[in-house]
Structure formats: C-alpha cells, structure tokens
Amino acid sequence: MRKLLKTTLAVAVLAAGVGALSGCETNEALGRSQLILVDESAMQQAAAAAWQEQLKSGKVSKDASMNARVQKVGARIVAAAGMGGQPWQYVVFDNDQPNAFVLPGNKVGVNTGLFKAVKNDDQLAAVLGHETGHVIARHAAERASQNAATQVGLQVATGVTKGRVQQVVANYGGLGAQLGILMPYSRKQESEADFIGVDLMVKAGYKASESVALWQNMSALGGNKPPEFMSTHPSDTTRIKGLQDYITTKGYK
C-alpha cells in the first residue's frame, strides 16, 4: 500500500524488456482503456522469482492469529471478486512497517506492522480488497508498460536533441518523467484500487465505512511522509476524502 516492494519495480522493468506489444486495451472494471505493452505471463514468472526471494530474505511471521485472519478475509474478498477459483498465496511478514503489497500471480504480503492500524476484520478487508483491486485493474502490467514507454520516449528525445538541450534532457528527463507522468498516474491507480476494494468489501459483507476508518488510523500513526506530488500514493487526507465521496455516491454504509 504505502510503499511497494523494491522487487515489484524490478519485476516491472524485467517484464517490460521481455514483453510482447499488445497496445491499448479496455478494462471494463475501470471503464477506461489501458496501455498494455507487456506479456503478463512473463511478469508472473518474474514475480514468482521475486516472491521466492522475498520469502527467503523476509521473516515470515508465525503469529497464528494474524495468519488465520489474513487467510479468512482474503478468501472472502477474492470470492466476492469471482476469483476464488484462482490460486492465491497470502503471507504475513514480521515487519514493523504498516504495509501490504501484491505481486503478479496473486501473491499477497501483509506486514505485521499493518495491524497497528487495522483494528478489525472490516479494515483488513479494506487492505486486501485494495490489493485485489490492483489485480483486477491490471495495474502491474499497466505500470510496467508506462515505464517502458517512458524510457523509450526519453531515449528518443536524447537522441534527437543537440548540445545543451540534449544534456538537460539526459540529466533531468528521467526525473521529469517520473514526477510528471509515472507518479501522478500511480496515484490514480491507487485511487482506483481503493474504490474497487470498497466494492469488494461490500460484496463480501464488510462495512465500506471501515475503509475510511483504516486510513484515519494510518494517518494517526504519523511518520515522515513526502509531499503528495513527490509520492506514488495519495496523501492520507486525499485518500480519506476520495473514499468518503465514493461511499456516499454508491450509497454504502
């Protein structure tokens, strides 16, 4: 959620290199088209390797209660998504950072630190619904494609400009593309996953309003956070407002 695993970006970059071009595709869950330039089966293979590395390098929690809760709530969420027939793997990591993540291939990690903010199963459903939302929205493939397209654009720009302009593009083009294209787009993806997650919560029998309570709890934890324009995630305030508006619009409780 707040911070994706470094391996996720590595997987995206690798997948972009081996992927096959497929162009723009319409995602009905989002109601918009997506630029998909990567082979998702290749992404899943790369993600599987990254996941195994994470299992080796990370400390898997033996807390029976936490593991049971994640498994139970996760099963209800994916069933609500109509994805219960697919293999899903949930692992709780002994890590104090309040974070969760999903990798291609339906591999979900939840840190023990998340339970500092998660006070009940409804709030846990908000987390797992959000991660499942990323899968439904095909955000990993989209983000990898966005990275690939941006890198190609920067290389072209560097190749066709001369002198000082060329040097500026070479030195600052990557940062400009990151702040101007990739990060804002990622914030959009995060909001989309939030909203899909709320829909899944409700369908699974959880309270939509607890997604707001979750982010209020996360905000209360404090900690150093970058300005929103420098972050891949919406600020807590933006996120809470977006969820409140969405829940009101949908008539959820």
Rank of each mutant, 00 (worst) to 15 (best):
N95Q: 07
L37N: 02
G129D: 06
K3Q: 10
W215N: 03
H233S: 11
W215K: 01
T232E: 13
K56A: 06
Q52H: 02
P227A: 09
H139V: 07
L55M: 10
L103Y: 10
K162W: 08
N99M: 06
K72N: 04
P227K: 11
H130A: 01
V102N: 06
K56C: 05
V212E: 00
Q216K: 15
R2H: 13
I196K: 05
I77F: 09
Q54T: 04
G19N: 03
L214S: 06
G205T: 02
V118G: 12
D245Q: 14
T132W: 02
M230R: 11
K3S: 11
K207Q: 14
A170N: 14
T8G: 03
K203Y: 11
G251W: 14
N95R: 02
V70Y: 07
G242P: 07
Q155L: 15
V135E: 12
C24W: 09
G176P: 03
A193M: 08
S209L: 09
S186H: 05
R164E: 15
Q54Y: 01
G113H: 07
Y252C: 10
F229V: 15
V13Y: 05
Q189Y: 01
G173T: 09
G205P: 06
R69S: 12
V92D: 07
K225D: 14
Y90P: 04
S219N: 15
D96Y: 13
D245L: 09
M218W: 03
A100G: 05
R239L: 05
S145Y: 04
I36G: 08
A148C: 00
V92C: 08
V110K: 12
L124G: 05
A137C: 06
G133H: 00
E192A: 14
A137K: 03
A157C: 04
G109M: 07
L114R: 00
R143I: 14
F93N: 03
T237M: 13
A149D: 00
E192S: 11
F195C: 09
E131S: 10
G223S: 12
Y206S: 09
E25K: 15
V110I: 14
V38Y: 01
E192Q: 15
A157H: 04
Q123D: 00
Q244T: 15
A125R: 06
G133L: 03
V168Q: 14
S145A: 11
Q166S: 08
G176N: 08
A49H: 00
A117L: 12
R143F: 13
K241V: 11
Q86P: 03
L5V: 02
L243D: 01
K241C: 02
A12W: 14
P104N: 03
P226K: 10
L182G: 01
